[in-house]
């Protein structure tokens, strides 16, 4: 270990990274010349649910994309399970154990539910029947609809297909971009329950949510982003209890 010459600071950073399962530190970047992220840091531990909340335009979805490699970073690094993945493409990150559910256009509409799940497992070579069985157990409705084109399902069912598709690679980290956008409150509760269930099976969750209150309730750790930087970071419960956070971001 000590043979390679490293500065104390780098060693410390590496140690800090290694402590978290996912660690995205001091990310800076954006789409054009102007940066959207100004030193944003996100950490998720094994089996944890991490939730990113914040006002519109705070860079929540951008931060997710940066973590997933869909946005070039000018500064900062991303490590997964202690391995530096900053330079990897999204596809390679999938191979390393990250799963991503985009906010919209997250299913193959003309393909059946089962084919959607199969496509999720495209990079796997072995038998996928067991994983598919797990997804069907998690979302029983998908089993009954498995021969139907995903485009014909309801919004909530489509989200289940989308999450199921991402689970098919057996990811160790599942990233969800506003999974409850546009679904009814009942379906939202149902989805959150499933997400807790997924986390209990040892998969880390990182998600962006508009429904901040409900999301923070299930969060082990919450990140409040404002203008591309971390404003508050604490456990979900602590953020909910913080009067300042409540007043500014949770509407009282």
């Amino acid at each position: 270990m000590s043979v390679t010459a490293t500065t104390p600071a780098e060693t410390a950073a590496a140690a800090a990274d290694a402590a978290h399962f996912l660690s995205a530190t001091a990310m800076r970047g954006g789409y054009g010349k102007a940066d959207i992220l100004h030193g944003c840091t996100l950490n998720v531990d094994k089996g944890q649910i991490a939730v990113i909340v914040g006002p519109n335009g705070a860079g929540k979805s951008t931060a997710m994309k940066a973590v997933f490699g869909m946005l070039p970073l000018r500064e900062g690094r991303v490590t997964l399970d202690g391995e530096d993945i900053t330079g990897l493409s999204p596809q390679d990150r999938v191979r390393k154990g990250m799963g991503f559910v985009p906010q919209v256009h997250n299913v193959f509409p003309s393909m059946t539910v089962e084919e959607n799940l199969e496509m999720g497992a495209f990079i796997r070579t072995g038998d996928i029947a067991a994983t598919m069985e797990q997804v069907y157990e998690l979302f029983p409705i998908l089993r009954t609809k498995r021969r139907q084109p995903a485009g014909e399902l309801s919004g909530g069912q489509r989200q289940q297909v989308a999450v199921g598709r991402a689970l098919m690679t057996r990811p160790r980290l599942l990233m969800l971009d506003e999974p409850t956008a546009g679904v009814s409150p009942i379906v939202m509760d149902e989805l959150f329950d499933r997400i807790i269930e997924i986390a209990r099976s040892g998969i880390s969750i990182l998600m962006v949510e508009q429904n901040a209150r409900q999301a923070l309730e299930i969060a082990d750790i919450g990140y409040v982003l404002v203008q591309g930087t971390n404003r508050y970071t604490d456990t979900g419960a602590a953020l909910m209890a913080d009067p300042e956070v409540r007043r500014t971001f949770l509407g009282g």
């Binding site: 999938v94 985009p102 256009h105 299913v107 193959f108 495209f122 598709r165």
Partner: peptide, 15 residues
């Protein structure tokens, strides 16, 4: 078919 349906998601799926 997946690529025809949704190019970006096909990329994410490793196609």
């Amino acid at each position: 078919r997946a690529y025809s349906d949704n190019e970006d998601l096909a990329l994410l799926s490793g196609i």
